[in-house]
Design a protein around this nucleic acid. Structure first.
Length: 185
DNA sequence: CGCCCGATGTGCT
DNA sequence: GCACATCGGGCGT
């Protein structure tokens, strides 16, 4: 739901890879909710791919697109209602050497400033689909990060859905923490 | 800087 | 068949 997209901002996304923590603060999210939301994958109803979104909240919904990219979502409630929050950008915090290696040749600001980039940086793929993001004993989870205030959040339409009809194309369900996307870190 | 476009596999019509 | 919740390189301004 929208409050989850809001709450995820400022939280820390943690990946345990070869025993090492790799993490970053979430600074950009988007909400997708319901079969009536024509930008949401669940617009086609319940299918093998979208089944996770109909399940309990707190699970990862990881899908493959454009023939080469993985994207990470957090499923939101209530159970039975298909909705998820896309994690679009993080600010790298831990495991910087690993991130730099996985994003070789790119400037730091381009390490994790996109939904597919952060999945590449943290080695997130389909094996993490339907895994619990509240379980800190797993390979991928969310932690309390840094509390943020309402004034720090910018609301805009969602990205990359230009072919979706109104009102869905323009509804401001993208959430950005002010002044974070272009930081050098 | 901005716009354009190719890459490349999968899910759904 | 075709669209796709993207990315990065190329080229023009």
């Amino acid at each position: 739901m929208l409050d989850v997209a809001h709450d995820l901002l400022g939280r820390r996304l943690v990946r345990l890879l070869d025993g090492q923590r790799i993490s970053g603060l979430i600074v950009e999210t988007e909400a997708y909710r319901g079969e009536e939301d024509l930008a949401c994958h669940a617009r086609a109803g319940r299918t093998p791919r979208t089944a996770v979104m109909y399940g309990p909240p707190g699970q990862a919904y990881v899908y493959f697109t454009y023939g080469m990219h993985w994207l990470l979502n957090c499923v939101t409630g209530p159970e039975g209602f298909p909705a998820a929050v896309l994690i679009r950008a993080i600010l790298p915090q831990e495991g910087l050497e690993v991130i730099a290696a996985r994003r070789a040749g790119r400037p730091r600001r381009a390490w994790c400033n996109g939904p597919a980039k952060l999945c590449q940086a943290l080695s997130i793929d389909g094996s993490h689909n339907d895994s619990p993001l509240w379980d800190s004993t797993g390979a991928l989870w969310l932690e309390k990060g840094q509390p943020i205030t309402e004034e720090q959040i910018k609301y805009t339409p969602r990205i990359g859905i230009d072919r979706v009809p109104e009102p869905w194309r323009s509804i401001p369900w993208r959430f950005v923490m002010n002044g974070t996307l272009n930081e050098q870190g």
